[in-house]
């Protein structure tokens, strides 16, 4: 899946930030190095960014920079990109719209979704992922269980490597797979890929909601 990119010029125009700010945030590691993508254009080399990620990140920085110093913010944002050291209570997960009540009731670590139960990132992230898919109406609640199980078992083994989650169906059977990217996958005709999600992008989204 090709990500939508935005050029540096457009980014500055859209967000109203200055070059000075952009480079300061880059230096402070608020904007990861990997997001600076260099490409050739007719005017020479230009820098592009993954649009959704950078706009989200700049929004976070602008909103939070009054409460936190840039260094504190950098620490929060730059933790190991795929498995940040974050915790949240069930109540927080609900309030910040990370996980819906239905999912929490059914797949939460404690039965009956006590609001005080503390979830670590690897525990609540799978719930966030299926919540997204359920909300989009792409999977059923049972299939969600399969995904949570797969993510719980397999995701840790990837040790922070960027990867995609694929969910597909054939003849009414559903299954899922986690692949490290970049990877191209080719299926037989009967397979319908229901969803392909970048876990890195989703991690960023959760981080944005929690900070």
């Amino acid at each position: 899946m090709e990500r939508e990119l935005i050029s540096k010029k457009e980014l500055l125009e859209l967000t109203g930030i200055s070059y000075g700010q952009l480079y300061r945030w880059k230096r402070k590691r608020l904007i990861p190095e990997e997001w600076f993508i260099r490409k050739s254009t007719f005017t020479g080399q230009e820098t592009f960014f993954p649009k959704e990620l950078i706009l989200g990140r700049i929004d976070q920085i602008i909103n939070k920079k009054d409460d936190l110093s840039l260094d504190e913010l950098a620490e929060k944002l730059s933790q190991s990109p795929l498995v940040p050291d974050m915790h949240a209570t069930a109540g927080e997960l609900l309030e910040r719209n990370i996980v819906s009540k239905v999912v929490l009731d059914r797949y939460g670590i404690t039965h009956g979704s006590e609001r005080g139960a503390v979830y670590s990132f690897p525990e609540f992230f799978p719930l966030f992922v299926i919540d997204q898919l359920l909300a989009a109406g792409e999977i059923s609640l049972e299939e969600g269980g399969l995904l949570v199980e797969t993510l719980n078992e397999q995701w840790q083994k990837l040790e922070g490597k960027p990867c995609d989650l694929l969910f597909f169906r054939k003849m009414g059977l559903s299954t899922c797979v986690i692949v490290s990217v970049p990877a191209e996958l080719h299926f037989d005709k009967g397979v319908k890929v229901v969803a392909r999600l970048s876990l890195l992008d989703l991690t960023e989204q959760v981080k944005g909601k929690l900070i």
Partner: peptide, 9 residues
């Protein structure tokens, strides 16, 4: 010589 220079001032 520098490939690219960016900044405030």
């Amino acid at each position: 010589q520098a490939r690219e220079i960016g900044g405030g001032d």
